[in-house]
Design a protein around this nucleic acid. Structure first.
Lengths: 205, 205
DNA sequence: GCCCGAGGCTAACTGTCGTTAGGGTCCGGC
DNA sequence: GCCGGACCCTAACGACAGTTAGCCTCGGGC
C-alpha cells in the first residue's frame, strides 16, 4: 500500500515471469515445443538462457504454466456463465460466446495447449486433464438439465458435450484474424450451429 | 505368381517398411514424436537403430509417411462416397460413417497426424495441408449443394464444413475402445448430431 | 556505509540424438 | 560357383539441448 506501484518501476515484481511465458507461448506455437530451445525463449525475451532458471525450474514448467492459462482460466472465467440466471440454452449460448472469446484472447497459448500435452510431466498432465474434464462435465450437466426441462433435445448429453467442445476448440486450428470471417461473425454462427441446431434449442431462447 | 508367397517367408518384400511405420506410429502416439528416438523405434520393430536408414532417409520421413496415411487415404477411400448416388444428406451421412471408421481403423496414426504436424518439413507440411484442405473443400461443396437443393439448411456452408470436420477429427482425442460407448453407437449418434441436426437435414433422408 | 538478495551473465558439463561409415551375411541370378 | 544387391550390424561422430556452477551488479533496508 505504501509503495508507489502505479508508475513504471524498473524492477517489476512478477512481470518478467509473465513475459517469459508469453514469449515462450509465441515461439512454441510457431515452431513446436521440442524445436525451441531455452536459448530461443531467452532471446525472445531479451535475456540469456541460463537466466530463465531464476524464474522457472525447468523448460517443462514453462509449458505447464502455458497449459494452465488455457485450462484454469476458462474454468474460472467461463464456467460462472453456466451458473448465471437464464434457461440452460441461454447459459450454454453465453458459454459458447465466452469460450470463443477466451480462445481468441489467448489464441497463442491455446495452440500450444492443444498440441504439446505429450511433453508434460505425467503429474502436470493429470492436472491439466482434470481441469478439462471438469469443464466438460459442467457442460454436460447443463445440457442434461436442458433436456430434462424440455428445452433441448439430444439423445446423449455426454456425447453432445464432447462434440460441442471439439467444435469450439477446433477453432484454434484454422481461425486467423486476417481471414474472411470476423470473430463475431463466427461466434454468432457457432451459437446458431451448436445451441439452436445441434442441441435442438431452436430459435426460442 | 511362381514364388510361394503364402507361408511365412523370412524375406518379405516391403513389409519391413510398413512394420517400421506401424511401430513408429505407436511410439509417437504414446510418447510424442520428439521424445522418441530412432533407437526406440528400432527396438519396437526388432532392429538396430542404424538399420532404419535402409528404409527411410530420416526420422522426419517416417513421420511424413504416417501423416500421409491419414490424409491421402481418407481422400482416396472416403471422398468417393460423396460421388455416390443419393441426396447430399445421404452422401454426407455416408462420409461421416466412412470417416469415423477410418479414424478408428487408423486411430494410432491419426493421433500422430493431429499433434505432430509442426515437426514436418515445410514442404511435407504443405502437402499434408493440401490434402486436408481438399477434403474440406469437397465436404463444403456437397453441403452447399444440399443447401441449394433445399435439403439442408445452414447459413454458411464453409463454416459448417469446418465445424463438421472438427467434430469428426476430435473423436481421436477422447474415444477409446474400452470406453462406455461402442464405435457404432458413436457413429450413428454423430450422423444424427451432424447431418440431421447441425446441417438441418432432419429425419427425411 | 554496509549487507544481502534478486536477477543476470559467462562458461561449461553431460547426456542424448540423428546420422554416417564401413563391414558382414545371405539370397537370387548368370 | 561367383556376383551383386538388399539388409543388418557395430562403432562412432558431431551437434546441440537442458541444466548447473560460480561470479558480478545493483538497489533497498538496517
Amino acid at each position: 500500500m505504501s509503495s508507489t506501484a502505479s508508475d513504471a518501476a524498473p524492477r517489476l515484481p512478477t512481470r518478467r515471469r509473465d513475459a517469459i511465458v508469453a514469449a515462450a507461448a509465441r515461439t512454441f506455437a510457431a515452431r513446436g515445443y521440442a524445436a525451441v530451445g531455452m536459448r530461443d525463449v531467452a532471446d525472445a525475451v531479451g535475456v540469456r538462457g541460463a537466466s530463465l532458471y531464476h524464474h522457472f525450474a525447468s523448460k517443462e514448467e514453462i509449458l505447464y504454466a502455458i497449459c494452465l492459462t488455457v485450462t484454469e482460466e476458462p474454468n474460472e472465467q467461463n464456467l460462472p456463465l453456466l451458473d448465471a440466471p437464464g434457461t440452460p440454452a441461454q447459459r450454454l449460448a453465453a458459454l459458447v460466446r465466452g469460450h470463443l472469446h477466451h480462445l481468441h484472447r489467448r489464441r497463442t497459448e491455446h495452440v500450444v495447449g492443444l498440441h504439446e500435452l505429450a511433453a508434460l510431466t505425467p503429474e502436470h498432465r493429470a492436472v491439466v486433464d482434470g481441469h478439462r474434464r471438469y469443464y466438460q462435465q459442467r457442460v454436460r450437466e447443463v445440457i442434461a438439465a436442458g433436456v430434462a426441462a424440455g428445452e433441448l433435445a439430444v439423445p446423449d448429453p455426454r456425447l453432445a458435450a464432447l462434440a460441442m467442445c471439439d467444435i469450439l476448440n477446433g477453432l484454434s486450428n484454422w481461425f486467423h484474424v486476417d481471414g474472411e470471417l470476423s470473430l463475431d461473425e463466427v461466434v454468432e454462427a457457432y451459437v446458431d450451429l451448436i445451441v439452436s441446431r445441434m442441441l435442438g434449442a431452436g430459435r426460442s431462447f
